[in-house]
Design a protein around this nucleic acid. Structure first.
Length: 518
RNA sequence: CGGGGCGUAGCUCAGCUUGGUAGAGCGCUUGGUUUGGGACCAAGAAGUCGCAGGUUCGAAUCCUGUCGCCCCGACCA
């Protein structure tokens, strides 16, 4: 007997569901994960994506959790226009500088048929831009609303789409149109606005870690990475599995820049005319890409239970027609029992996949989609009152048989374990690939791929001293495509310790985080 | 917008050098056998070969133009 004749049962053998694997070609792996998890796909329009139901459900979960956190911190939702008069954008010089190059511009408002072709007609007297962000139009609105210190603070958020005409789109990470939320607040005092900026950064950090199981570094951006028009930009920065950094959320202290540009003025308690202090903060559908790159494995997406749209997927195994109904009934019963249990303060989200397909096919589909727990119930389980339970954070073939009567009690614990495991895993990964570096040579070696023909995954985060100059930053960026991801908030992991800048030999007040970024 | 590559079935691609009228695998549909881990057999549907011109008796194949996509740079959440 040849070896080949022994293997027809395992036609796919030990192959991973996603090809190439992460280590082979990370960008391609990512695209395959997005596609095979049915999260999104490219659309007819360059740079724009179709977010599929499984991807949109994830976004809805993110919206739900964040929205509750915004409300809990005193914010209300509102909606501002998609179109912004061109003249508005012009008011804040840095802002123009930052966004002008990627604005979609609306110049006409009508189409006419000429020789069978539709052509734009009805030219607008003033072109409109499609919002790349809404500081300007919201500022103009706030200017009308604010007359007195009694009108402050204004604490609003909007859920919206924005357009930034990107030249090199990537699903979720960088698309021409994307979904996000943007908070915009106006305050009486500088101190109050700074508190707000920091508070919302805290909200994002908590959300990333507690819900997405993604450890993030809270910090401030250097001048060159700052939001156009901001006085200070804070961020949460995550490391994904190719060891690159991704900015997962930002919070900006805008000082009085936008208030000045938009005329947000009020009469103070001292009867003097003052400019308001404003902030803005946002996260986008980029979080979905971040999540996939942080937790995904060679079999596809891995959803942390707390954010997963479906936490438990029940697969009825129905090999024989005569037991089919009984198995399906048992699956329904188990689903109902589980739905009455809860995890992290919410009822369990349980689905049954009763499609008439082979069990293996269905399992792999849900593995690729990243459902945290799969429960298989077959005819043999009816007798033994058991079910096969598989965790997405373990190997695809690892199954544990549990008594169906224990599921309602056990599943919430399993979900909690998975959630914790994903966070621990991601944190360990980041720590493993974060290094204190004190010489220029080591720094350059760290960020230079061994094989320049086909650059492998290398480097990570470097904790290095820096003299604070933009020139040094620019030089490093030019040489290595490495930038300062953030100046981290002081913590046990990132203590403030003075030293010597390895690039200039000058004094440095503290280490900052360098890395390659998305 | 600069440099490189590629457009052939839903997807991945072969065919092109040397023109002769459309192929494979996967997927899909139907029927049967299967089903506790990506099943098998049989039958079937599916492409104006990116688009427009040109050369030719004849173009997926050669020529010109054009559009789109991907990768590398510049820019960015």
């Amino acid at each position: 007997m040849t070896r080949d004749s022994l293997t027809p049962f395992m036609s796919k053998g030990n192959e991973s569901a996603i090809s190439p694997r992460r280590g082979e070609d990370f960008p391609e792996w990512y695209q395959q994960v997005v596609r095979s998890a049915e999260m999104a796909e490219n659309s007819e329009v360059r740079g724009c994506m179709v977010i599929r139901p499984w991807g949109y459900a994830l976004w809805e979960r993110m919206q739900g959790a964040l929205d509750a956190m915004f409300k809990a911190t005193g914010h209300k939702n509102a909606y501002f226009p998609l179109f912004i008069p061109l003249s508005h954008l012009q008011k804040e010089a840095d802002h123009v500088e930052g966004f002008a190059k990627e604005c979609a511009v609306v110049t006409h408002h009508r189409l006419e048929l000429h020789d069978g072709k539709l052509v734009p007609a009805g030219e607008l007297t003033e072109p409109l831009i499609v919002r790349p962000t809404s500081e300007t139009i919201i500022g103009a609105t706030y200017a009308k609303w604010v007359k007195s210190y009694r009108d402050l603070p204004i604490l609003l958020n909007q859920w919206a789409n924005v357009v930034r005409w990107e030249l090199r789109p990537r699903l979720f990470l960088r698309t021409a149109e994307f979904l996000w939320q943007e908070g915009h607040t106006a305050h009486e005092t500088e101190a109050e606005a700074i508190v707000e900026t920091e508070k919302m950064l805290g909200v994002y950090g908590e959300f990333a870690e507690n819900w997405l199981a993604i450890p993030v570094i809270r910090g401030e951006k250097s001048e060159s990475e700052r939001f156009p028009g901001a006085v200070r930009t804070y961020c949460i920065e995550a490391m994904v599995q190719d060891r690159k950094a991704i900015q997962a959320g930002t919070s900006h202290f805008l000082g009085q820049n936008f208030a000045k540009a938009s005329g947000i003025k009020f009469l103070s308690r001292n009867n003097t005319e003052e400019l308001a202090w404003t902030t803005s903060w946002g996260v986008s559908t980029r979080l979905i890409g971040t999540l996939l790159m942080a937790h995904g494995d060679d079999d596809g997406a891995v959803m942390p239970p707390r954010i997963a749209a479906t936490q438990v997927l029940i697969i009825p195994i129905t090999p024989k027609p005569d037991t089919r109904d009984a198995v399906l009934a048992k699956a329904e019963e188990v689903a109902a029992t589980l739905r009455s249990a809860s995890y992290a303060g919410e009822a369990l989200r349980v689905e049954i996949d009763a499609r008439d397909l082979g069990g293996g096919v269905k399992s792999w589909e849900w593995i690729k989609k990243g459902v945290p727990l799969r429960i298989e119930i077959g005819p043999r389980d009816l007798e033994s009152r058991s079910a096969a339970v598989a965790r997405r954070d373990k190997g695809p073939k690892e199954k544990e048989f549990l008594s169906v009567d224990s599921l309602a009690a056990r599943v919430p614990d399993l979900l909690a374990e998975i959630q914790q495991n994903l966070l621990d895993r991601a944190l360990a990964f980041r720590r493993e690939h974060t290094r204190k570096i004190d010489t220029k040579e080591e720094f350059y070696a760290y960020f230079t791929p061994q094989n320049s023909e086909k650059p492998e995954i290398h480097g990570g985060f470097a904790l290095a001293h820096w003299n604070g100059s933009s020139e040094v930053e620019a030089k490093i960026k030019e040489d290595l495509k490495v930038t300062i991801r953030c100046i981290p908030e002081e913590s046990e992991e990132f203590p403030i310790e003075p030293g010597i800048c390895p690039f200039t030999g000058e004094q440095s007040a503290r280490r900052v985080i360098f890395g390659k970024a998305y």
